[in-house]
Amino acid sequence: MSEEVKPTPPDAGPETPKPAAPPAAAPKPPAAAAKPAAPKPPPPPAVMAATPWESDLTAALKAEFADQITEFSTYVGQSFLVARTAAVPSIIDFLKLEQGFDYLVDVTAVHYPKKPEPFELVYILYSFARNERIRIKCGVKEGERPASIAAAHPTADWLEREVFDMFGIEFEGHPNLKRILMPDEWEGFPLRKDKSIIDMDQRWVQENLGIESGQ
């Protein structure tokens, strides 16, 4: 049988509270502000240093959607185009049927609260035949309802639901647009920039989990 040799408990019990200085979870300034400042290099450009993108694909797209596409660019070797929101479903259809971009990799969004079109939808497409990956981006206004592409690409079903869940962008014509990761009764959209990480649906947390939320 095992026999205790030294009965010291592994830690001090509750009767000897630690002289813990501020608890470790105390609010602290964000790490970004506290980082030691390196000797200032020349300030980086505030916009993406993208270069124009020219290929047979861009020529075909220009011929088909003359003024609907506003930008063809390449950044770190990755090509993307910026299009008007209304034209995106037809561009994706065109790419799928005529150019072989038959695999929708991802649909996601980015929130820029200060821009006139605060949301940027990002579609990533891949073509097995061409072994090429492109991104399609478009701006979405608050309350605007971009068309769903779930009919052409069934995989967009869940991906668009996730964008709705996280950003509150509603897709027109989506078969089953409801929350996917967050609870159904949750209020607010977590990945919007105007919500901080602890500024969430306190009511839901208290009602359903019985705890005070926050870190």
Binding site: P44, P45, A46, V47, M48, A49, A50, Y75, V76, Q78, V105, D106, I124, R133, R135
Partner: peptide, 9 residues
């Protein structure tokens, strides 16, 4: 680490 403004997949 401060990557320049941009995006990558």
């Amino acid at each position: 680490l401060k990557p320049p403004v941009g995006e990558a997949y």
